[in-house]
Simulated assay, not measured.
Amino acid sequence: MTRFLCLLALLFTAPVMAQNALPASPYAHRQLDDPAQEEKARSLMEELRCLKCQSQSIADSDAPMAGDMRSQVRERIAAGATPEEVRSWLIERYGDWVTYNPPVNAVTWPLWIAPGVLLILAIWLARGLFRRRKTDQKDAG
């Protein structure tokens, strides 16, 4: 029974002990001093996906990882990197999925082609459905 209680206590206290004790990144919640650099960083952060939240940009997310990514973007912009260089670095580090506008390559081309194929398929199916209704109405009348 004692072992069971110890296991149960460990099960409920483990999530509390797993909290992130690391300090926040320096530019996670602080803007750059130069307004032009901050605008570049901000517009880039709107185009980058939070890897934890998945449906939010890193500019909108409160996740610690998004804060780290915001800090990395601001630090690199402050060091003189262009937004495209920072985007390329993040894509190299985290993969194409990190950006809302992934490049067209062998892995992502189905994402770019799928909407057109689905639209053509929907038009073809609707055309067949309308033809069938028209012939059914002629046969009934």
Rank of each mutant, 00 (worst) to 15 (best):
P23H: 06
A78I: 01
M45T: 02
G80H: 03
P64K: 06
T82W: 01
E85D: 11
R42W: 06
K138Y: 10
S61F: 00
L10F: 13
L119V: 15
A140W: 04
W89N: 10
G67E: 03
G116P: 04
G141F: 02
L7T: 15
V107T: 11
T108D: 09
R76M: 15
F130H: 06
L10A: 15
C53P: 03
C50V: 09
M65G: 08
A106F: 12
L51T: 05
L7I: 15
D60G: 09
D139Q: 10
R131K: 14
P15V: 08
E85M: 08
R93A: 06
T13F: 13
D34P: 01
V86S: 00
Q31F: 00
V73S: 04
E84F: 00
L22Y: 03
W97A: 13
P26A: 07
G141D: 10
I77M: 07
Y100V: 00
P115T: 11
R30W: 03
T99D: 11
A59L: 14
C6K: 15
D139P: 00
S61Q: 00
F130C: 06
L44H: 00
S25F: 04
S25Y: 02
A114S: 14
L51F: 08
M17V: 13
W124R: 08
A41E: 03
W124E: 06
L7S: 15
Q31S: 05
R76P: 02
A79H: 01
W124A: 12
P35T: 07
R3N: 15
E38S: 01
R74Q: 13
T82E: 09
P103C: 11
T13E: 05
D68N: 08
F4E: 13
N101W: 13
A14C: 13
E47G: 08
Y27Q: 07
I91F: 03
A126L: 15
L121R: 06
E92G: 15
L8D: 10
P115W: 13
